[in-house]
Simulated assay, not measured.
Amino acid sequence: MTYLFIYGTLMPGLRLEAEMHGARFVGPAQVPGRLFDLGRYPGLLPGDGHVTGEVYEVDDAHLARLDGVEGVVPGDRAESHYWREVVPVASGPLQGQPVQTYVYNRPVDGCTPIPHGDYRRYIREVGRES
């Protein structure tokens, strides 16, 4: 089993929430990083700040399916849309523990930063459905 931090359209109430069915909710959390509006979804990059989301426990088969959803090309980071990386939990039930998350693997030039790092809050603020 793997702890996975999600922060965008995979979260409950958002467009891809069905992809998380079968995962066990662990709790809300924040991880270090910066969040960007990429259009129909957000992207997390390493950096100063915190990104708000949720941690789930997923099995290997579920993780492999999510990799497909997120555009991970196994063994080929250069071709991957996102890449799964280990980050520390900054706050939440697993504070201080490592979890995996999907880090955006493309340039963000021209993309809008989400300064507070909370995608749900952001889409409410800009009046967008996700």
Rank of each mutant, 00 (worst) to 15 (best):
M1C: 08
M1D: 14
M1I: 11
M1R: 13
Y3L: 10
I6D: 02
Y7H: 07
G8Q: 14
G8A: 15
T9Q: 12
P12Q: 07
R15N: 08
R15F: 08
E17H: 10
M20A: 12
H21G: 12
R24A: 11
R24V: 11
F25T: 02
G27F: 00
A29S: 01
A29F: 02
Q30M: 13
V31A: 09
G33N: 05
R34W: 08
F36E: 07
D37K: 09
L38F: 07
G39T: 10
R40T: 11
R40C: 12
Y41I: 04
P42H: 06
L45R: 15
L45M: 14
L45H: 06
G47Q: 04
D48G: 13
V51E: 06
E54I: 01
V58M: 00
V58D: 02
D59C: 08
D60I: 00
A61T: 09
A64I: 14
V69T: 14
V69K: 09
G71K: 05
V72R: 03
V73T: 11
D76M: 12
R77P: 13
E79K: 15
S80Q: 09
H81T: 14
Y82N: 08
Y82H: 10
W83N: 07
R84S: 02
E85G: 02
V87L: 15
V87P: 05
V89E: 00
A90C: 09
A90Y: 00
S91K: 08
G92P: 03
L94A: 05
L94N: 04
G96W: 04
Q97S: 07
Q97A: 10
P98D: 13
V99A: 06
V99N: 01
Q100A: 10
Q100F: 11
V103S: 09
Y104V: 03
Y104C: 02
Y104W: 15
R106H: 06
V108D: 13
D109I: 13
G110V: 03
T112H: 10
P115G: 03
H116N: 05
G117L: 13
Y119E: 01
R120E: 13
R120N: 14
Y122A: 06
I123G: 03
I123D: 01
E125N: 10
E125S: 12
V126W: 03
E129Q: 15
